[in-house]
Design a protein around this nucleic acid. Structure first.
Length: 830
RNA sequence: GCCCGGGUGGUGAAAUUGGUAGACACGCAAGACUUAAAAUCUUGUCGCUUUCGAGCGGUGCCGGUUCGACCCCGGCCCCGGGCACCA
């Protein structure tokens, strides 16, 4: 600590906090190495996109991460708590267009400002490990890793849909399409197919699903969301032969269904607008061509697809039912996605509600093939709605009549296998990860397209493929797509002239491996070194619940690929996960795109970091979403000044406290000690297990209320007060580290980083009496106190004698008595 | 539309294993100090009734299980997150 430690009778965070922060930085207090004898603890909060300034969502996430890291440090762990920047992304391009400043420059200055804000919030970061994902030293290893995945066969190219703005001649993100129009140009947006790179996350679908069972430290709700997203299903893939062969479509239409038992109820087929059969039909029919053009008017987002009116048109082509050989008409439908499975479905309107509505609309036949069991009490009228139950039995299904779901499934699947028309198959809803973006501000995809060799990966020695820094953005197209000096190159394989890929990676690529790079952030010989094995997995990962699926799933996938490459040893990136609720502003999540008020700077300047941190932690438990309000900050500041600082200073002014002599304590002193040790016990549990830091604060507030009432200046009174104050300051230290660093120095003459967590004195917890309640018919009617662990019979007798209880028992027949020792007695009377 | 959560005083919330609903705060009201204000301190604060002992109602809505339900079960309403190119 500096020679001149902050010392004033009243606490002013503006000068005190700066001094403490300087001490932490100058002495590298939070930098860590791998050779500690202590157990390691890797604490990580989701790194921010450098949007300009912190908002309250950041303050919450990083304070929670800091509290966890600081608590684990108090508990004797070797804690790595790093911070960096998720620096590629769309907002930098928007800012570049608007302000005519290159994305790199805008990003860099945002990082500088936000870093200073993080420092002023007093977070215990190992700043020596900081990096930004737009640093070539970072993304070069991402490019390298991509080439590894390419060589492993985990990468392929295929056509996929994008939102195309025909005026700006550019691809739009979903959030840039508003009511079907481009947000800048206002032009009607169309779906367009582009060739894009995909990574085979589906190769890991099974493991990503199964390993969720091992993640005991994850909230059940997040695991449920991931399970549903991966969406394992068992079904049958089968082929409906085409009545006549169709050009580019072969002679069969392949579909997947989880309900092969209802196959006899299939009355039509539906294909996506991009399906070869639809394209073939468009050539023959102007109406079909018009319909397909109309399908292109919907934005590429599942929510929009689900909400739109379900439309279709007959292609005029016909398939054959695989069992009956009957004609089945083939329709094009706007709700069938080419990206899913084969881009075609069989429609069973009797037993699928969407198919039923479509059939009603277009007067297609509806055939019931399942009926409820007579004893089930289920209502079923196929004229009113589809029957979706799986507990019924088959009907109108020839030899399969009377079979239940499972028997029908097997019997029909077996016949299809026999006929060579189908196979039982496990399917996943999860789709491969499209990683191409037609944007400038991202990591260049390290591929060269050669007219002879096809796509060739850039050799390791030529990495990184550098993104040019000094560019202007017009909003029309990515600059590197029009820069020959970027894309003109030669084929790494055959040496002839060739062109680089000008797309960049999805920014989820960067955030899928940053957690391990912090371990090896200064390593330039490779992506990771041995330190990554020491630090991974992350012991506690903290971040917003909005990342429950995409970011967390992609990162789990990357981690498994890195494991298969021998770069890490664990199967999963995050042992424990704290999924935070949203900090809302006007009812919606705080973010760059939904308004960026909520800048904490004014509050920091006025009340200090400790007050902001404390108010944020006190506002709600971590999983709750809540509307941010500044109100608590002023009162947190007041509590720190008038309760904590002033009380400790006044206590110290009374002179040195003697050693505690437990045998000499009177009843009041014992009572305060009991509260102190109950508070320690609760804080330990709330910090370590429950992660409810709001209740840590309220129990310390209660403790301080008791200390102020205590008012005992006897030698042992001072000793008990001293113990209480040391406990209160130590417990608060993870949340309000600046003031606690100073107070611990004053009261115990130690620096915070040397302090150890408090031990609970079990003997101090013993109670001499317990409060009992008495209920009559479950309603509270009286209270009494008893010695701990008094026998049931005695408690019952004591309860009967409680004054207010007597009148509720008078003249009633006692039916039953429930006695819960140390808690309550309940008389059931009539 | 689909998947996942949430809903408790005027406000943020607490109640950890089914056992005193509203701890701890904010706000508000009254009082103390002050020429005054700020700051600080004290008291009160779910609603209704009250003989001031207490009684009745009350945790989004409707129903159920239980001696007892904020907590478990069924149905509904509202709000939030995600839905694969915001991050």
């Amino acid at each position: 600590m500096a020679e001149q430690m902050y010392d004033a009778p009243t606490y002013d965070p503006r000068t005190a906090e700066k001094e403490v922060q300087q001490y932490w930085l100058d002495n590298g207090i939070y930098e860590v190495s791998e050779d500690s004898p202590k157990p390691k603890f890797y604490c990580l909060a989701m790194f921010p996109y450098p949007s300009g300034q912190l908002h309250m969502g950041h303050v919450r996430t990083y304070t929670l991460g800091d509290v966890i890291g600081r608590f684990q440090r108090l508990k004797g762990k070797n804690v790595l708590h790093p911070m960096g920047w998720d620096a590629f992304g769309l907002p930098a391009e928007n800012a570049a267009i608007k302000n005519k400043v290159p994305p790199a420059e805008w990003t860099k200055s945002n990082i500088a400002y936000m870093k200073q804000q993080l420092v002023s919030l007093g977070f215990s970061y190992a700043w020596n490990r900081e990096f930004a994902t737009c640093d070539p030293d970072y993304y070069r290893w991402e490019q390298w890793f991509f080439t590894r995945m390419f060589n492993k066969g985990l990468v392929y190219k295929k056509a996929a849909m994008v939102n195309w703005d025909p005026v700006d001649q550019t691809v739009l993100a979903n959030e840039q399409v508003i009511d079907g129009r481009g947000w800048r140009s206002g032009a009607l947006v169309e779906r367009r197919e582009l060739a894009q790179w995909f990574v085979k996350i589906t190769d890991y679908a099974e493991e990503l699903l199964d390993d969720l069972d091992k993640l005991d430290g994850w909230p059940e709700k997040i695991k449920t969301m991931q399970r549903n997203w991966i969406g394992r299903s068992e079904g049958v893939e089968m082929t409906f032969p085409l009545r006549d062969p169709i050009k580019d479509a072969g002679d069969g239409l392949t579909v997947y269904t989880t309900r092969p038992d209802t196959l006899m109820g299939a009355t039509y087929m539906a294909v996506a607008a991009q399906h070869p059969i639809a394209k073939a039909a468009a050539l023959k029919s102007e109406q079909v061509a018009d319909f397909i053009a109309q399908c292109a008017q919907v934005k590429v987002a599942e929510a929009d697809m689900a909400k739109m009116e379900k439309l279709g048109i007959d292609t005029g082509f016909t398939a054959q039912h695989p069992l009956t050989g009957d004609d089945v008409p083939i329709w094009v439908a706007n709700f069938v996605l080419m990206e899913y499975g084969s881009g075609a479905v069989m429609s069973v309107p009797g037993h699928d509600q969407r198919d039923w509505e479509f059939a009603k609309k277009y007067a297609l036949p509806i055939k019931q093939v399942v009926k409820p069991r007579p004893d089930s009490g289920e209502e079923c009228d196929i004229e009113i709605a589809a029957y979706l139950g799986k507990s019924g039995v088959l009907m109108n299904s020839a030899e399969y009549d009377g079979l239940d779901f499972e028997a029908g499934f097997s019997a029909i699947a077996d016949v299809l296998v026999e006929k060579g028309l189908g196979n039982k198959q496990v399917n996943y809803r999860l789709r491969d990860w499209g990683v191409s973006r037609q944007r400038f501000w991202g990591c260049p995809i390290p591929i060269v397209n050669c007219s002879v060799c096809g796509p060739v990966v850039v050799p390791e020695a030529e990495l990184p493929v550098l993104l040019p820094a000094d560019v202007a953005l017009s909003g029309v197209t990515s600059p590197i797509k029009t820069m020959p000096e970027f894309y003109q190159t030669t084929c790494p394989k055959c040496g002839i002239d060739a062109e680089r890929e000008t797309d960049t990676f999805d920014t989820f690529m960067e955030s899928s491996w940053y957690h391990v790079r912090f371990a090896s952030s200064d390593y330039n010989e490779g992506m990771l070194d041995q330190r990554a094995k020491y630090w991974s997995s992350v012991d506690h990962y903290v971040g917003g619940e909005e990342h429950a699926i995409l970011h967390l799933l992609y990162t789990r996938f990357f981690h498994k690929v890195m494991r298969d490459e021998g770069m890490v040893e664990s199967d999963e990136p995050f042992v424990k996960l704290l999924a935070l609720g949203m900090v809302l502003q006007n009812g919606v999540k705080m973010s760059k795109s939904s308004g960026d008020a909520g800048d904490p700077q004014k509050l920091l300047d006025t009340y200090g970091a400790d007050a902001v941190r404390m108010a944020m932690m006190f506002a709600a438990p971590p999983e709750h979403s809540f509307e941010w309000s500044e109100h608590g900050v002023e009162s947190a500041n007041r509590w720190l000044r008038t309760r904590l600082w002033k009380t400790v200073v006044e206590h110290l002014a009374q002179g040195e406290a003697p050693l505690l002599e437990l045998a000499k304590l009177d009843q009041g002193q014992k009572e305060l000690r009991r509260i102190v040790h109950e508070t320690i016990q609760k804080a330990d549990d709330d910090y370590g297990r429950r992660l409810t830091f709001n209740t840590v604060i309220s129990s310390v507030m209660s403790l301080m209320n008791q200390v102020m009432k205590f008012d005992d200046n006897s030698p042992q009174g001072l000793a008990v007060t001293r113990e209480a104050l040391v406990a209160a300051v130590t417990i608060m230290a993870p949340i309000t580290p600046h003031i606690c660093q100073l107070l611990l120095k004053k009261i115990s003459n130690v620096n915070l980083e040397q302090v150890e967590w408090l031990a609970v004195d079990e003997a101090a917890l013993l109670k001499t009496t317990v409060d009992m309640i008495v209920q009559v018919n479950g309603k509270l009617r009286g209270k009494f106190t008893a010695a701990p662990d008094t026998g049931k019979a005695e408690l019952e007798q004591m309860a009967k004698n409680v004054e207010n209880v007597v009148k509720f028992l008078a003249g009633k027949t006692l039916r039953k008595v429930i006695v819960v020792p140390n808690k309550l007695v309940n008389f059931v009377v009539s």
